[in-house]
Each structure stands twice: as C-alpha cells, then as structure tokens.
Simulated assay, not measured.
Amino acid sequence: MNKQHIINNAEYFIHDEPYYEPSANEVDIFNSALAENIPVLLKGPTGCGKTRFMEYMSWYHKRPLITVSCHDDLSTSDLVGRYLIKDNSTVWQDGPLTTAVRNGCICYLDEIVEARKDTTVVIHPLCDDRRILPLEKLGELLPASPDFCLTMSYNPGYQSAVKDLKPSTRQRFISIDFSYPAENIEAAIVHQESKLSMQQCEHLVKLAHMTRNLVGNGLEEGASTRLLVHTAKLISRGFEANLACKCGVANAITDDEETKKLLHEMIDTVF
C-alpha cells in the first residue's frame, strides 16, 4: 500500500490581495490567535464577509488556505482521507484537513454546523495542546505543522437544537462575531466590488437595512452585502435599479408573496 501526501502548496495561496474593509478589531484578534495557535470560530449572518475575511488573512500572512464547504453528507473520510484503488494498488489519499495539517495550511471549515456531529469530533485533538490528527485507518497520530491553523464559521441565525455546536467543540475556539458593516463601509464595499456610483450604492445599503428590520417579521434574514454587490452589478450592466432590486434582493430573500409585495413597495420608495 502506498501513501500519497505531497501537494503543490502554490495552488492554495491567494496571490492577489482580496478587497476587505475591517469593521472592528477582527484582524488584530485573528493575528493574535494565529501567533498563539488558537483555533478561531467566525460567527455571523450569510454574506457578511466571513469567507472574504479568511481569504484576506490568508493573503496577508502568505499562508495557503484550504476551504471545505460543510454539508449534511460530509463524512470523517471526506475530511481526513481514504484508501483508493489506483493502478492495481491501494493508495492513501489525504483529505483536505489532513493536507492542511501536514503542509501548514489554514483550514477553513465553512458552515461547520451543516456537517454531521460525528464528523466534527475528529477536530477535537487538533484544537487543544495536543495538536494532533488521529488517522485511524493508517494507525497514525499526525502532529500538526507549526503553521497549521484551524478556523470554522457558522450562522447563528440558523441555530437550532439539531444544528448547533456542542460545548465540547465550541470551547476549543475563540470566537469573532461578524455582522453587516456600518452603512458607510458597506456602501464603499459595494462600490468597490461593482463600480456602481457611490450614491446608488448608498441607496442599496439603505434598502438592505430596511429588509434587515423585517427579520423575525416575515424574513429569516435580510439582504446580505453579497446580494447588494450582485444587485449593483446588474444596475451597472444597464438594468433599471427598481428591476435589479426586485430580482437581486426581494425575489432572492423570500418566496412569500405578501412579503415580496412589501419589499417591492420598499424598493419603489428608495428608488
């Protein structure tokens, strides 16, 4: 049986600086956690910049970044690795977590609560003083590279008894709370990403805040910064702002006809 470990680290590097506007002290907190080998949990609503933040920190520290989008069917083998049949022999193939541990990458588990609970337990030995990854199928305890960093994200808005982090997992991490940026910063982000005029971007942000005020009263979540960027790009392509907002915001965040009608009225008011 062969083991396959070597990767081309270059493919995991962020070569161009991602645009990111800090909204609080999240950069300083992450820098300190990285220096002390402390795992980091990012909490915040959909589309508020958690993934962009990780890309920025990867670029800033010149550390390779491996991102795993978690889902209900994510198994321990998907994270750690498995044996594969290749050329009439059995070859061990590292999973993304093992690859990160071996090669000193930042491993980012996006929306960790979507993964099965038995899968997340495998990260526990990595998140304390041991910093080891048990590879049961290899009979090996893999020590983490000094540069390895584990980060996770989740959306507290979808928190439930079924989908929540166990205290035994949560208390291995420091937590950074993310929210939507202040209005002036959010408008600047939308402007930078879409090249739409600042005035139009400010109108979009105003609309977003109106939708966020409806959370719990017809909406699970308001319009995200990501949705605003998508909508701004439609406007930049020549679509009328009213139509772009109905397609990019209202119809994207709800299917309820009464709520959509209310959102359309808001759009007519702003634009």
Rank of each mutant, 00 (worst) to 15 (best):
M1R: 12
N2T: 08
Q4V: 01
H5A: 06
I7Q: 13
I7E: 11
E11F: 13
E11H: 14
I14S: 10
H15T: 15
D16A: 07
P22A: 14
N25R: 11
V27C: 08
V27D: 03
V27K: 10
D28E: 15
D28F: 05
I29T: 09
N31Y: 04
L34K: 14
A35H: 15
P39I: 11
L42W: 09
G44H: 06
T46I: 13
G47N: 04
C48T: 14
G49T: 12
K50Y: 05
K50G: 09
M57W: 06
W59A: 06
S69E: 06
H71M: 02
D72H: 10
D72N: 12
D72P: 02
T76V: 13
S77E: 15
V80K: 04
V80A: 09
G81V: 04
K86P: 00
W92L: 07
W92R: 07
D94V: 00
D94M: 06
T98N: 05
V101M: 04
N103F: 09
G104C: 02
L109Q: 05
D110Q: 10
V113N: 14
R116W: 00
R116C: 02
T120C: 02
V121T: 05
R130V: 02
R130M: 06
I132W: 00
L135E: 06
E136N: 09
L138A: 07
L138Q: 06
L142M: 14
C149G: 01
C149D: 07
L150I: 15
L150R: 11
T151L: 15
M152K: 00
M152D: 01
Y154M: 14
Q171F: 15
Q171H: 14
I174W: 05
I174M: 13
F178D: 06
F178L: 04
N184F: 03
N184M: 03
I185L: 11
A188E: 14
H191A: 08
S194W: 08
L196T: 11
L196I: 15
L196W: 10
Q199E: 14
Q200W: 01
C201W: 13
C201E: 12
E202F: 03
V205E: 07
V205Y: 08
K206D: 13
A208K: 10
L214C: 12
L214H: 09
G216D: 04
E221Y: 10
A223H: 04
T225F: 02
T225C: 05
K233W: 03
G238Q: 01
N242H: 03
L243F: 08
L243N: 01
A244E: 03
C245M: 11
K246Y: 08
G248Y: 06
V249G: 05
T254V: 09
D255N: 15
T259W: 00
K261D: 03
V270N: 02
V270I: 15
